[in-house]
């Protein structure tokens, strides 16, 4: 016995290479790509989306792994959260591994992908602040060939995905530098971020890069706070900071992300969010420098 009347068998294509996938999308402009389906199928099931056809990306093995290219890691868009959470990946890009481990329950991590997380561009997408802090770029495959752009351009909609284009790879510079990702959900079980912070201490460029997720539609970079704290670090020495400096950094980041509105008192929810961002940023910096 089945619950629902069988849906008219949707037109599903399962290409086994990127080229085939791009061709399939060119053939059927109304088709929608689907990777793990953890975002897409929720919209389909609730009736928000009725795709005329689907192009499944799950069989494209070239985007399910990663490779090295000139001091960077080239991550396939089809990497699952579960794969990114494993120790070998964590040794490579610890902050992204931490984000992946915190993304939803195990069932979701087994199916959900990096590409889907970026394409969905949800404010609570856990990979997004990490990619912003690492200054990653995305490689898009389309009918007119590949192009590469900073992930922030894609997320902010400055340079969106064009029709027929697929997210193929994510390029992340390999920094031999401490990086952290911290997420607050308000609960112990898996949950969407109330706020998250990704932070990199990059001695090569003498930079601290910090990105705050979930408090705005896209990850926020508190550039002034980054520069201020980078100026306090003795890059040639111990690279430690006094606890007060970490606390001040946290406050700085929080105030930048949840600014005061002139003339009005911050509502209690905003005060709590600011407190949370401050604690996360302080902890993230403390751990990166530890």
């Amino acid at each position: 016995m089945s619950t629902y009347a069988r849906q008219e068998a949707a037109n599903v294509t399962l290409p086994s290479s990127l080229d085939e996938a791009v061709a399939a999308l060119a053939d059927m402009p109304s088709a929608v790509p689907v990777a793990g389906g953890t975002d897409l199928m929720a919209s389909v099931n609730s009736g928000l989306l009725r795709p005329a056809a689907l192009v499944g990306l799950g069989r494209i093995s070239e985007i399910r792994g990663w490779q090295y290219a000139d001091g960077a890691a080239l991550l396939g868009a089809g990497l699952t959260h579960a794969r990114m959470g494993r120790p070998d990946f964590a040794a490579l890009i610890p902050a992204l591994a931490a984000a992946a481990r915190s993304a939803g329950p195990p069932q979701i991590r087994n199916a959900g992908t990096l590409g889907g997380n970026i394409a969905s561009a949800a404010p609570t997408g856990d990979a997004l602040p990490v990619l912003a802090a690492l200054e990653a770029s995305v490689i898009l495959a389309g009918p007119d060939g590949d192009r590469e752009l900073p992930v922030s351009h894609l997320l902010t909609g400055m340079d969106p995905l064009r029709p027929g284009e697929l997210l193929a790879f994510v390029r992340i510079p390999l920094l031999h530098a401490p990086q952290t990702f911290l997420k607050a959900t308000g609960r112990t079980g898996p949950g969407r971020a109330v706020a998250s912070v990704a932070l990199v201490v990059d001695p090569a460029r003498r930079q601290v890069r910090c990105s705050v997720g979930a408090v705005a539609p896209v990850p926020l970079r508190p550039l002034e706070a980054e520069q201020w704290v980078a100026g306090l670090i003795d890059w040639d020495g111990e690279r430690t900071l006094a606890p007060e400096a970490c606390t001040a950094f946290g406050e700085y980041v929080a105030a930048a992300c949840i600014p005061d509105q002139p003339g009005v008192e911050l509502p209690p929810a905003a005060v709590q969010l600011r407190r949370t961002v401050a604690a996360l940023s302080r902890r993230a910096l403390g751990r990166a420098l530890a």
Partner: peptide, 15 residues
């Protein structure tokens, strides 16, 4: 130690 905030949450034993 499963800290408040979960497995890979932001928990810090000192707090």
């Amino acid at each position: 130690w499963l800290l408040p905030g979960g497995v890979s949450g932001a928990g810090e034993p000192g707090a």
